[in-house]
Design a protein around this nucleic acid. Structure first.
Lengths: 225, 225
DNA sequence: CGCCAGTTTGACCAAGATCAACGCAAGTGG
DNA sequence: CCACTTGCGTTGATCTTGGTCAAACTGGCG
């Protein structure tokens, strides 16, 4: 499954893709995708839109959210470079997607993707894996939202961001406190208070748009309960 | 996509499956699956097991749950007849699955399924759709767990069960109050109190293991906020 | 320099958790 | 057949966490 190195000379082999693996699958997808740029807070798609395409983040960060009639909002996921989003089972979008900062992404038409998937097991497998990864991520978050305290939620959020960035100690927070609150099921005040408290306790060093994880073991301890 | 009737004479056509639709896909899967029965509270698989198979419920109900070291539990999903579960992205199970009552299910080996999917676009599409349905269900529940009151959670749970049963007014609750609590991120006491209150207000008629939805419009109102 | 959006901090409040008692029906064993 | 247990479910009293409301602060930016 794992391919040890990138093979530039395979780029022109797209027609063979039905018999090849993950890398070629990605190259075949490349052929039907377009590269797009979005600016801060620009909508990539909205709730209720026809789900005619899906995307993969090249750079920047995207939030996937749902807004209720009464104004309550929930962020289902943050997507960073490499993450796919916008694959939906229904014709209509149940969520909207917005750029958090400057974002570059690849957009793939749904119909052409399905056609490619029908012809190429590699692409089908790739899409299946993306869907399962999303499912697993969402289910993991059910535990956080359903059963963890504000403290644990914020800490596990910081750990999640760190882990998604090779365990880096210094993490960027491109999203606002409000986004974090809607992601964790907390108010901005609680997010802010919790971060201030972690800061005071010297477990992290907070700064509006970045956080340094100082005592990772202690943070892990909190997230585990 | 929709096939109007079952064609018994297509059962022997498994080799043709690569060019056929959903129904044939299901029939091809049939060939690699085994039918199993489980009794109340019996484990179908456990957290940490190797994820070597996935299942589809034939009859009965299954809970998919995650238990933390400190005892806090979360139920990620209830699966009823027709629902697939146990498809996971990793080699190890992140959740366990248990029979809620008497359960009959089909169990499919993962490796053989992947092989079938590689040969048959119909099966690949079927699996992809199952994964996306699960993803969508989980993301929808993020909003419930993150942003809804106890009242709204319980009501939307009742509505979900009703809708998954063709909008039936009379719904069975095969699971315990504790399961419902762990599904909704509430304590059993809160679940019980809320049901009692809905009962007192004559919006539903509660009975330990079944509920009649009396005033569906009013319930919808509560669930919408 | 002052405005403004986003953030932080504080005081107070309420939804839901916790702790505890009680009810009830289905076993179980004498 | 009847005490006794056991597992759920319900109800009540109290407490805590995190939400709400409000005010102050901060850093970009025109």
């Amino acid at each position: 499954m794992y391919r040890p190195s990138f093979q530039p000379n395979s780029i022109r082999r797209a027609p063979d893709v039905a018999r090849s693996g993950q890398l070629d699958a990605l190259i075949a997808l490349d052929g039907i995708g377009v590269r797009l740029r979005f600016i801060r807070n620009q909508a990539i798609y909205a709730q209720g839109d026809e789900a005619g395409f899906w995307c993969k983040v090249v750079s920047g960060a995207v939030r996937i959210s749902k807004l209720r009639a009464d104004g309550r909002r929930n962020i289902a996921a943050f997507c960073f470079a490499g993450d796919a989003f916008g694959l939906e089972p229904d014709r209509e979008r149940g969520f909207s997607a917005e750029a958090i900062g400057e974002v570059t992404l690849m957009r793939y038409p749904r119909a052409a993707t399905e056609r490619l998937a029908d012809e190429s097991p590699g692409i089908a497998r790739h899409l299946r894996e993306e869907a399962l990864k999303g499912l697993s991520a969402a289910q993991g978050r059910l535990l956080i939202l359903g059963r963890m305290t504000a403290y644990e939620r914020v800490v596990s959020f910081l750990i999640e961001l760190s882990d998604r960035n090779d365990g880096a100690k210094q993490i960027e927070l491109p999203m606002s406190r409000c986004d974090i609150g809607d992601y964790l099921g907390l108010t901005i005040e609680t997010v802010s208070r919790t971060l201030s408290d972690l800061n005071r306790r010297r477990l992290v060093a907070v700064d509006p748009h970045s956080v340094a994880l100082i005592d990772r073991p202690a943070l892990d301890e909190i997230a585990e309960g």
